[in-house]
Design a protein around this nucleic acid. Structure first.
Ligand SMILES: O=c1ccn([C@H]2C[C@H](O)[C@@H](COP(=O)(O)OP(=O)(O)OP(=O)(O)O)O2)c(=O)[nH]1
Ligand SMILES: [Mg+2]
Length: 543
DNA sequence: AAACAGTTGGG
DNA sequence: CCCAAC
DNA sequence: GTTT
């Protein structure tokens, strides 16, 4: 009915229903057995649409979840079930017994009256499965993203975006030069035009741009993103990566509604499993695996434990295996490292986002204290703050000084930390440089005042010569960094927080046998340049 | 089967 | 060395 | 989970 943007999606579901024997009509008549309304359509809107004053007895009114579930369970489930109700539906007279209010029970048929006696209440009139005719919504709007992409394409010899957008692919058989032969300044390599495809940032992620409802696959994307977040919270980094890549290609194919297995699996980054999931989403509007995962109590606990600073995959699993279910359990019974102990103590503090303004305040305090130690040492707030985020997960600060080496700066760091402890700004250390050449300090800080939460704060000590690489690293985001580094390694180079190196020799299992020779470390932009990546300001480094 | 980034710090 | 974090 |  209403949401035009969902036309393609709706069409898919209609065709699916027909495939299973339904006859679909759009006006009311006495042959109608079920009325399926789009999500968020109200009961009285249905009446209006059908020009009725009431729905005759014996006709089921449901949301689109019902046909989806029927297909899923291979039978007609009870359309009266809670899950399928249309908002505003008056029928809620004496619904089921209050006992049944358990939220866990899945919609599988209860029993009631109603016409839908088992097989056949829909007018069964088997039709041949309709051929898909993928929709191509009139939607060729360009947005900021596209502009950025185009800019890249004009200046990008190879498919840089494959790495940065991480849609990968392309380097398949067709690669004219799979052999590691590259001319130095390949600025016009332009290889084949056979592959001007894709290229996309996936930079439109949740925080920044909200999802793009113009995309015909927005529902699929939304569900896959939920799946990805679950895997992320469980620290399954590989699945998370795969979902991210697949989602990114879906976002880029924003003119085609992906509805069949063949369509899906032909997309780069989408394999058998994800293609099946996409088909399930498209035909049922849900993903069973997701709903199950959301409820899995074990996953919930794992997620809780992973939220503790210092607790990762292995520890969290051990805690669960030991039967712990709450933070109190762990605190009382488990053997913890000191950082973990603090992580539990400050669990809720550390989980809160930090308003941008407060990040700045922390940065200013550090900066001020620094001046009393060494005028020439500068501090820079990095991380999500530098990328312009409205709120940050922590405070990331680089300490640097022109011409200085780590040893000198390390001393400054120690003095700084001492001073800030004295001032009751720093509350604890969590991971601190062990040697005189240590470069990082992780801890917690807090503003003055009643009830101020502790904040995670990270210092990174950076010799003047490495400031470019360090800025690149500490600005992130993490996905962007990994993309850049992967790209570097594919070009026979190595990128880390100290610099960009060439002639890296990698041995047997990719292990590096060779540090490589330094190409650049002082100038952030030059690193982009050498890698052949068009420069991107921090705000655009969100992948 | 192995890679998917490359590094520093706790214990 | 393994684990966790950036 | 996907690609090589
Ligand atoms: O696995 C990682 C994590 C982080 N970083 C870099 C990029 C990142 O931007 C910076 C700071 O890390 P942090 O964890 O603070 O991320 P953030 O980008 O600042 O986001 P948040 O707002 O969650 O702090 O360190 C990496 O290179 N790899
Ligand atoms: Mg941060």
């Amino acid at each position: 009915m209403k949401p035009c943007l969902k036309r393609a999606e709706r069409k898919m579901r209609i065709e699916k229903a027909q495939e299973y024997g339904a006859t679909v009509v759009f006006t009311f008549s006495n042959t109608v057995t079920h009325i399926i309304a789009d999500k968020d359509i109200k009961y009285n809107e249905i009446l209006e649409f059908l020009q009725l004053t009431e729905i005759p007895e014996g006709i089921a009114v449901t949301n689109p979840r019902w046909p989806g579930d029927c297909i899923r369970y291979g039978k007609l489930v009870d359309p009266k079930d809670f899950w399928y109700q249309v908002p505003g539906c008056p029928t809620e007279s004496q619904q089921r017994n209050p006992l049944q209010d358990a939220p866990i029970s899945e919609p599988i048929g209860g029993h009631s009256s109603l016409p839908s006696s088992p097989p056949s209440s829909l007018q069964v009139q088997p039709r041949p499965p309709p051929k898909q005719q993928p929709e191509t919504p009139t939607n060729s709007q360009k947005d900021a993203l596209d502009e950025a992409i185009e800019e890249c394409l004009t200046t990008t010899p190879i498919n840089i975006e494959d790495f940065l957008g991480s849609s990968s692919s392309s380097d398949t058989e067709s690669s004219p030069e799979s052999s590691p032969k590259r001319r130095k300044k390949a600025s016009s390599s332009s290889s084949n035009s056979a592959r001007d495809w894709q290229s996309h940032f996936q930079c439109m992620h949740k925080h920044t741009g909200a999802l793009n409802p113009e995309n015909p696959n927005s529902r699929t994307i939304q569900i896959l993103e939920e799946m990805m977040q679950i895997y992320d919270s469980l620290k399954d980094q590989w699945r998370t990566r795969s979902y991210r890549i697949a989602i990114s290609t879906l976002k880029s194919s924003n003119t085609t509604y992906i509805s069949t297995y063949e369509q899906a699996i032909s997309l780069p980054g989408v394999g058998d499993r994800l293609a099946k999931k996409i088909v399930e989403i498209v035909s049922t509007d849900r993903l069973q695996r997701l709903e199950y995962a959301k409820l899995d109590p074990k996953d919930q606990i794992l997620k809780l434990f992973h939220g503790i600073y210092g607790v990762g995959l292995v520890q969290a699993r051990k805690f669960v295996a030991a039967g712990y279910t709450t933070l109190e359990d762990i605190k009382k019974n488990a053997t913890l490292t000191e950082p973990q102990r603090i992580g539990i103590e400050r669990y809720s503090d550390f989980k809160q986002r930090i308003p941008r303004e407060e990040v700045k305040q922390h940065g200013d305090i550090v900066s001020t204290a620094l001046k009393t130690i060494d005028e020439k040492v500068q501090s820079h707030v990095m991380g999500s703050y530098r990328r312009g985020a409205k709120d940050c997960g922590d405070i990331d600060i680089i300490l640097t000084k022109e011409g200085a080496g780590v040893e000198e700066l390390h001393e400054v760091l120690e003095k700084l930390v001492e001073k800030l402890f004295d001032r009751k700004f720093l509350m604890c250390g969590l991971a601190i440089a062990r040697h005189d050449d240590g470069t990082k300090w992780h801890g917690a800080s807090r503003l003055e005042g009643e009830g101020k939460p502790w904040r995670r704060i990270d210092f990174l000590v950076v010799p003047g010569e490495e400031i470019g690489a360090a800025f690149l690293y500490f600005t992130g985001n993490d996905v962007f960094n990994r993309s850049m580094r992967l790209l570097a390694s594919k070009k026979g180079m190595r990128l880390n927080q100290k610099g960009l190196y060439k002639d890296v020799v990698r041995g047997k299992n990719r292990e590096k046998l060779n540090e490589g020779t330094l190409l650049e470390s002082k100038d952030e932009k030059k690193i982009f340049e050498i890698l052949g990546v068009p420069y991107r300001p921090p705000e655009h480094r969100i992948c």
